[in-house]
C-alpha cells in the first residue's frame, strides 16, 4: 500500500511540470507582452512608470530573451511563491487566489461528499427494487438531472427563491461576513449558504453516479456469492450492503478520478451565475480582461486540484480493492 502511494506521489511533480508548460503557453498566447499591457493599463488609469522601472520589469520577466528562458524565470518565481501581479486588480495574484482557492476546495469536497451520500442509497434502492415505483421515479429524476444544464438549475432555483420566498440566494456569505477574517460565526454563516450551491453543483454528478451504481449493482446481484451468502443464513439487507454494494462501489470510486476535477473546474458558469467567491468567476474575468498571469495561475491551480483528485481516487481505490493493492505493490 505504501509503495503504491509513494509511486503515485513521485509522479506528481512530473505531471505538474507538464501542466506548467501548458499554463505558460496559455499565458503567452495573447499578442503583445505583459509589460506593454501593464504600462498601457497604468496609463489608462492615469498613473505612469518611469523607464527604469519598466526596464527592471522587462528584465524580471526576461522579455527580451527566448521563450524557454521566460518560462524558467516564471517557473522559478512560481516555485518561490511569487505568482506575479494581476493587471486588472493591481494586486499580487497569491492574495487574490488564496482565499478563493480555499473556498473552491471546501465547496468541491462538500459537493463530492454530498454526491456520494445521496447517490449510493438511491442507486442501491433502485437496483434492489428494480422496476418498482421508486426505481422509475429516480430513473426519471436522474435523466432530468443529467439533461438539465447545471447553470439552468441554478437560475431556476434563484428565480423561485426570489419570486416565491423573497430571498436572494447568491454568494457563500451574508454581506456582513463577506470580507471578514475567518471566525466561528463566519463558518456558521458559510454553512447556512453553502448547501444550495452544493445541491446545484452535485445534482448532475449524483444522477450520473446513481445510474452507474444501479447498473453495477444489478450485475452484482446475480453473482454466485449472493447465493452463498444467502445459503449461510445471512439477512438479506445485511448481505446486500456487505457484498454487492461494496463491490459495485469500486467502479464508482474510479470515476472519482474524473469527477472531482470536474466539480472543481466545471463549476465556472454556475459559480458565476450564483456569484460564488471561488476561483471560477475570477478565471472568467481574467480571460475576458486578458489578465494572463492571473489566468495562468488559476489554470495551474485547476491542474493541481485535478491531479490531487486523481491521486485521492487512486489511493481510495487501492484501499477498497485488495486486488489493485497487490497488483501495484
Amino acid at each position: 500500500m505504501l509503495v503504491y502511494i509513494v509511486k503515485r506521489l513521485l509522479l506528481l511533480p512530473l505531471l505538474l511540470l507538464v501542466f506548467s508548460v501548458i499554463a505558460f503557453i496559455l499565458i503567452q498566447a495573447p499578442p503583445g507582452d505583459f509589460v506593454t499591457s501593464y504600462v498601457a493599463e497604468l496609463a489608462a488609469s492615469g498613473s505612469s512608470m518611469d523607464r527604469l522601472q519598466i526596464d527592471a520589469l522587462r528584465e524580471l520577466y526576461g522579455l527580451d530573451r527566448p521563450g524557454y528562458v521566460q518560462y524558467f524565470k516564471w517557473l522559478t518565481r512560481m516555485l518561490q511563491g511569487d505568482l506575479g501581479v494581476s493587471l486588472d486588480f493591481q494586486k499580487p495574484i497569491s492574495e487574490l487566489i488564496g482565499q478563493r482557492l480555499l473556498l473552491t476546495v471546501i465547496l468541491g469536497l462538500s459537493t463530492f461528499l454530498f454526491t456520494f451520500a445521496v447517490a449510493i442509497p438511491i442507486g442501491t434502492i433502485s437496483a434492489t427494487r428494480q422496476y418498482s415505483f421508486f426505481d422509475y421515479f429516480f430513473t426519471v429524476f436522474n435523466y432530468v438531472g443529467v439533461a438539465t444544464p447545471t447553470f439552468m438549475t441554478a437560475l431556476i432555483l434563484m428565480w423561485l427563491a426570489f419570486s416565491k420566498l423573497g430571498i436572494t440566494i447568491t454568494g457563500l456569505f451574508s454581506p456582513e461576513f463577506a470580507d471578514e477574517p475567518w471566525s466561528f460565526a463566519r463558518t456558521v454563516d458559510l454553512g447556512k449558504h453553502i448547501w444550495l450551491p452544493i445541491v446545484i453543483l452535485g445534482m448532475d454528478g449524483t444522477a450520473r453516479l446513481a445510474r452507474i451504481l444501479r447498473a453495477n449493482l444489478l450485475d452484482e446481484l446475480n453473482k454466485p456469492y449472493m447465493e452463498m451468502a444467502r445459503a449461510k443464513g445471512m439477512p438479506e439487507w445485511r448481505l446486500i450492503m456487505k457484498y454487492p454494494v461494496r463491490l459495485a462501489i469500486n467502479p464508482l470510486v474510479s470515476s472519482l478520478g474524473w469527477y472531482l476535477p470536474l466539480i472543481f473546474s466545471g463549476s465556472l458558469i454556475v459559480a458565476t451565475v450564483l456569484n460564488l467567491p471561488t476561483i471560477g468567476p475570477l478565471l472568467l474575468r481574467s480571460l475576458i480582461g486578458q489578465d494572463m498571469f492571473l489566468a495562468g495561475a488559476i489554470v495551474l491551480s485547476y491542474f493541481g486540484l485535478a491531479v490531487i483528485g486523481t491521486l485521492l481516487s487512486d489511493i481510495l481505490l487501492a484501499w477498497l480493492d485488495p486486488r489493485i493493492r497487490m497488483e501495484e505493490a
Partner: peptide, 8 residues
C-alpha cells in the same frame, strides 16, 4: 471462485 467475495 465466484462464491467467495474477492474483496473480503
Amino acid at each position: 471462485m465466484a462464491a467467495l467475495s474477492p474483496v473480503h
